[in-house]
Amino acid sequence: MDLSAADQTILRMLQENSRERLEAIAMETGLSVATVQRRIRNLKADGTIMAESALINPKSVGYAMTFLVFVELEHERIDQIDAFRRKARAEPQVQQCYYITGEADFAIIALARDMEDYEHLTHRLFFKDSNVKRFRTSVVMDRTKVGANVPL
């Protein structure tokens, strides 16, 4: 996609603060407020802006632990891959799920309140799924950088 300099500025400002005032964006881009509003609406409609959300500290709401989990499936038929994707999307404790190449088929970032909570999660996602061949878990020691910003 070929974005104008103004669109890139709009995206940069919204990534930094999704509640940025339209007037501030208009001043920065040199566009009118109405034009900025229309461009934002178009960026949402074409899928460039996927969502707006608040970044919450997991510890503040009781999720003290973060895990990186690499999942290997027994069979990689498209229906089985899609079934695992649906399960991961539906699980609230899964923050991110990636279908990947290499030794594992999926990489998951998941939250848990404690080890017992993580154990319950593993039963729901992995042990009860006959197509999960194995999974490997790493415990996150420090959330050094967290975000979803895209370089513009």
Rank of each mutant, 00 (worst) to 15 (best):
M1C: 06
M1E: 12
M1Y: 02
L3W: 02
S4T: 11
A5S: 14
A5I: 13
Q8A: 05
Q8E: 10
T9A: 14
L11V: 10
L11F: 02
R19C: 01
R21L: 11
R21M: 12
E23I: 11
E23A: 14
I25K: 00
E28Y: 04
T29G: 01
T29C: 05
G30S: 08
S32P: 12
V33C: 08
T35D: 03
V36I: 09
Q37P: 06
I40H: 03
R41Y: 09
R41I: 04
L43M: 04
K44S: 08
K44M: 14
D46T: 12
D46E: 11
D46M: 08
G47F: 11
T48N: 04
T48F: 08
I49L: 07
I49W: 01
I49T: 03
M50F: 10
A51R: 12
E52R: 14
S53H: 11
S53I: 06
S53D: 07
A54P: 02
N57Y: 11
P58A: 13
P58T: 04
S60K: 13
V61Q: 05
V61D: 09
G62E: 09
G62S: 12
Y63I: 06
Y63V: 09
F67A: 12
L68N: 07
V69S: 05
V69F: 07
F70L: 11
E72A: 11
L73F: 13
E74S: 09
E74N: 12
E76T: 10
E76R: 10
R77K: 13
D79S: 15
Q80E: 11
Q80I: 00
Q80K: 14
Q80H: 04
D82E: 15
D82P: 00
D82T: 15
A83G: 00
R86N: 10
K87M: 10
A88R: 00
E91V: 01
P92N: 10
Q93C: 08
C97H: 12
I100F: 04
G102L: 03
G102N: 03
A104S: 15
A104P: 07
D105W: 01
A107L: 15
I108R: 00
I109F: 13
I109T: 14
I109P: 00
E116S: 08
E116H: 13
E116C: 00
D117F: 01
Y118K: 05
Y118H: 10
H120T: 07
H120C: 09
L121I: 07
H123C: 05
R124H: 11
L125M: 04
F126E: 06
F127C: 06
F127S: 15
K128S: 13
D129L: 05
D129G: 04
S130N: 06
N131F: 09
V132P: 00
V132F: 08
K133C: 07
F135W: 12
R136C: 01
V139Q: 07
V140N: 07
V140Q: 03
D142R: 13
R143K: 15
K145A: 13
G147C: 04
G147P: 03
G147E: 05
N149E: 15
N149F: 10
V150Q: 03
V150D: 01
L152G: 14
L152S: 03
